[in-house]
């Protein structure tokens, strides 16, 4: 079982991203679940969501405590939330950042998802949308395939810029 924890802020699309990642994994032929952790979220508040991907049925619904991969959609969370909690030494962090970031003892893959959203004008109510481009980054890392990512996105968004965002992230991320 491969477990992902996604850190974001309300309004950035972390929950949608979790659902799209699970759907893409499902299209890859895997079993997958997406579990948003619901608290009393407001716009801008830190939130987490979990994705599990497995070859066999997934019976657990609880929160992911020891993720195999952490996704951080907002780099400012690094200073307020322990995003590395439970991540095994050497584990991977996919971080939305325009600059390389070092996190001692972990493998950090950065992707300028905000930049991609701004270039493509994927902005709603002032928030750059990151929930589709992040799938491109995960595809590059090898968690899901790019084809399934594009299929999952296209089925949920009519605006073709969403698929374009994933493709752009896939092309830009060095994994």
């Amino acid at each position: 079982m491969f477990e992902i924890r996604i850190h974001s802020r309300g309004g950035q699309g972390g929950v949608t991203a979790a659902r799209l990642i699970a759907l893409a994994a499902f299209y890859d032929g895997k079993q997958a679940t997406a579990t948003p952790f619901y608290g009393a979220e407001r716009r801008g508040a830190p939130i987490v969501a979990f994705v599990r991907i497995c070859d066999t049925a997934i019976r657990t619904c609880c929160q992911v405590k020891e993720p195999d991969l952490v996704v951080v959609l907002d780099p400012t969370l690094l200073s307020t939330v322990n995003v590395l909690k439970g991540l095994a030494p050497g584990g991977t962090v996919l971080l939305n950042s325009p600059h390389p970031v070092a996190l001692d003892g972990f493998r950090v893959v950065t992707a300028d998802l905000t930049g991609i959203a701004l270039v493509l004008d994927l902005v709603i109510a002032g928030s750059p949308l990151l929930d589709t481009s992040v799938l491109g980054g995960l595809a590059k890392i090898g968690v899901i395939t790019l084809d399934s990512a594009k299929r999952a996105i296209a089925e949920n968004f009519t605006d073709p810029r969403n698929v374009a965002a994933a493709e752009k992230a896939y092309a830009e991320v060095a994994a």
Binding site: Q31, A32, I58
Partner: peptide, 11 residues
């Protein structure tokens, strides 16, 4: 179950 099942996506 609220949220745990109502809001979790599964096959």
């Amino acid at each position: 179950d609220g949220f745990i099942l109502s809001h979790t996506m599964q096959p």
